[in-house]
Design a protein around this nucleic acid. Structure first.
Lengths: 340, 340
DNA sequence: ATATTTTATCGAACCGGTTCGAGTATAACA
DNA sequence: TGTTATACTCGAACCGGTTCGATAAAATAT
C-alpha cells in the first residue's frame, strides 16, 4: 500500500461509518465496546495515523504554539544560555499536551510585528509565547484584535498575562546571602531600569536590606548595560567614590565586568569585595573565582509559560502571573569555601 | 464581519469563481490582468489572508521544517551557545522561503525515535533537520521508509545528506596559528573519537603539522570528554610525561580545563604554553587570558542546513555535503598581543 | 404496555483551500 | 474561411479529518 491509510480505509476495514471510526479513534463516548475494538484493530493493522493537517483544518486548531523572540533578547539570552533552557522547558510542556512548538525570531521590531501578523493571520498557531520584558509592544493590538491567546515571558508594562522569574525574590536572596556573610555595605550593580526585571530586582535588593535592619543607600545602586565592558566601566568609575565590601550584580556578565574593575583597582574578590550575581551559567561556573549566583530556573519559566498558555487556550480563566523563584548557588566569589 | 474572510468571500466580491480567485491570488498564469486586479483588490478590501491549515491539507505540504535535537547534544550546545546561533541561522533561511521551524527536543534516544515517528507519521513537517553527529540513528529506517527529506547537521557515520563545519579546516587553521607563533611541539586535546567531528579535527591537526614540515607525534594527541573537569584531569596527567610548548584544544571548555591544569602544574598561559581552541563563545571571550579560538559560524551552519533541506524538498538533487569553514579569532591565550 | 430518554450508528455537510476537466471566446494558422 | 491552438473562466471534486442531524435500538420512566 503506497499512500498512507486514511480514516476511510479504517472505517471500511472495520465495517463502520467514517464518523463512527472517528469517534472510536478519539475515545469519544457513544461507541460500543465491540465496535471500538474493531476500529482500533483495523487502525492498527493498517498502520493508520491521523493526518494532522486534516485534523487541524477540521477543528480549527493547529496544536502548535509559537514562540516570538525579538533578536535583542535573543542576544541577551545567547550569552546566558537562558534561551536554551527556556526552550527546553517549553518543549517539555508542549510535548506533554500534544502540542508542537514553533520558533519565530525577529531580527528587528518591524520584523517582530510582521511575523506576529503572518503567524496569527495565517492561523499557524493556537497561541503565542512572547519574550519581551520591556519595550513597546506594537503588535499587542493585533493580538487582541485577533483574540489569539498569548502569554508574556517577563513582566510587560502593559496589562497582560505573564510568567516571570520572581525577580524580587531573586535579588532578595542574593542580597541576603551577602548579609549573612556579615556585609552591611552592599553595592548593587543593576541593569537599565527600562527592563521591568531590573525594577523588580531593585525592590528585592532594598527589601533584603531593610529586612535585616540595614539602611538603604541609593548611592550604592549603580546601573550598567547588560554587557561586560559597560559593567566594567561603571564599577571602575564608582569604586573611588564609595565605601562598600560586597557587590550584588544583576547578571553573570555584569559580575565579570565588575570583578575586572575591582581587580584593576587593586581589590581582591572575595577578600576585599564579595560578589554575588544572577544567572547560573557556564560563565559563572568557570570564572575565577567561581561565581556565587542565583539560578533562575529558566527551564521552569518556559515550562510554566506554556502551561499557562494552554490553560488560556482551553478557556480556563487564570489571572495571576506565575512567578518562578530562584535558588542560590553558593560558590567562591561570595567568600564561601570552595568544594570540588 | 466576525470570522475572517475566505477565498469564497473574495471570489464572490470580485465576481469570479473560487478557482479563478485561487489562481489570481497565487500569481498563476491563465488569469487576465483585469480579473487578477479585481481579485487582488477584493482580497485587500476584505483583509483576506489564506488559511494555512487549509492550504496545507489541499496541497499536502506543511511548509514547516522540524529540528530534531537529542538532549545530549543540546547539553553540549547549551554551554557553547551553539544551539542558539544554529537556530537563528535556520530561522533566517526558513523565513526566506516562507517556511516555519518547529522544535523537537528529545530527552532520550527512545524519545528521539518516538518524536521522529510522531512528526513524520502525522505529516507535521515537510522535512527534518537532525543534529546527530555520531551515535546510532535508530530512526534512519523510518526516515527512509516514509521518504521524508532530511539533512543531518554534523557528519553522520551512515550515508546521508549532511551539512557540517569544515572540521579539518578548523583544526588546521587553529594548529597553523600556533605554528606561526613558532611552536613545533603542539599538543592536541581532542574529544572522544566516536564523534565524527573529532575524527575530522584529528586529520586537520595532523595536516597542519605535516604541511609545515613538522613531525606528527601521536603521543601528543590526548582525548577528554567535552567537559571541563575531564579536560583538567587528562591534561594534568599528561603534563609530566611530555615536552610541548603549545596546546590546541577542541573546545572552549576543554581549553579552560587544560589551562587550569597547566596552572596547577606551574605553567603560565601563554608564556609557557600557548593555547588555541575551538568555539568562539562568551566563555572564550571572558576567560583570563581571553582565548584565541576558531569561530565555527554556527549561524551559517544552520542557515545552509535549511537551504540544503529545502533544495532536497524541491527535488533538486544535491549530493555533496556543505562544509562551513571556520575563522580564527586571535586573542591572548596564543601569545598574540591583547587589544581592547 | 406505552412514552421517553439514552445509546449507538450512519450519511452528509463542512473546514478552506487547490486542481482537474470542461466549456467558451479569442487569436493564430493554414 | 474553416481549423486549431491558446487564453481565460468556471464548477466540481478533492485533501482527510470532525461534527451535526437523523434514525433505530435499547434502557428507563410512567
Amino acid at each position: 500500500m503506497r499512500s498512507p491509510a486514511t480514516i476511510r480505509d479504517v472505517a471500511r476495514r472495520a465495517g463502520v461509518a467514517v464518523s463512527t471510526a472517528s469517534l472510536a479513534l478519539n475515545g469519544k463516548p457513544y461507541v460500543s465496546q465491540e465496535v471500538r475494538l474493531r476500529v482500533l484493530q483495523a487502525a492498527e493493522e493498517l498502520g493508520y495515523y491521523p493526518n494532522m493537517m486534516a485534523k487541524n483544518l477540521a477543528d480549527g486548531r493547529t496544536r502548535n504554539l509559537g514562540l516570538i523572540t525579538p533578536i535583542s533578547l535573543e542576544h541577551l539570552f545567547a550569552s546566558s544560555g537562558f534561551f536554551v533552557h527556556l526552550i527546553r522547558g517549553m518543549h517539555r510542556a508542549t510535548a506533554e499536551h500534544g502540542y508542537t512548538l514553533s520558533l519565530h525570531i525577529a531580527e528587528s521590531q518591524e520584523e517582530a510585528v510582521s511575523r506576529v501578523q503572518t503567524v496569527i493571520r495565517g492561523r499557524r498557531v493556537d497561541g503565542l509565547l512572547i519574550t519581551n520584558p520591556t519595550v513597546e509592544i506594537p503588535y499587542l493590538h493585533d493580538l487582541k484584535r485577533h483574540r489569539i491567546p498569548f502569554v508574556f515571558i517577563g513582566r510587560p508594562l502593559e496589562e497582560a498575562r505573564y510568567v516571570d522569574n520572581d525577580n524580587m525574590q531573586v535579588s532578595r536572596i542574593g542580597t541576603h546571602h551577602l548579609i549573612e556573610h556579615g556585609h552591611s555595605k552592599i553595592a548593587f550593580l543593576n541593569g537599565p531600569s527600562h527592563f521591568t526585571f531590573c525594577v523588580d530586582r531593585m525592590m528585592g535588593y532594598r527589601g533584603a536590606l531593610e529586612e535585616a535592619g540595614l539602611t538603604y543607600n541609593e548611592r550604592l545602586v549603580w546601573h550598567s548595560e547588560l554587557v561586560e565592558p559597560s559593567a566594567y566601566k561603571v564599577v571602575w568609575e564608582q569604586i573611588p567614590n564609595h565605601d562598600f565590601t560586597a557587590l550584588f550584580a544583576g547578571s553573570d556578565v555584569q559580575a565579570l565586568g565588575a570583578i575586572r574593575a575591582l581587580r584593576a583597582r587593586g581589590l581582591r574578590v572575595p577578600q576585599d569585595v564579595a560578589v554575588v550575581c544572577v544567572n547560573d551559567t557556564d560563565l559563572a561556573r568557570h570564572s575565577t573565582p567561581p561565581l556565587t549566583t542565583v539560578d533562575l530556573h529558566e527551564y521552569w519559566l518556559g515550562y510554566w509559560a506554556v502551561k499557562r498558555l494552554i490553560q488560556t487556550i482551553d478557556g480556563e480563566e487564570t489571572e495571576h502571573p506565575i512567578l518562578i523563584p530562584g535558588d542560590l548557588v553558593p560558590r567562591e566569589s561570595c567568600g564561601c569555601q570552595a568544594d570540588s
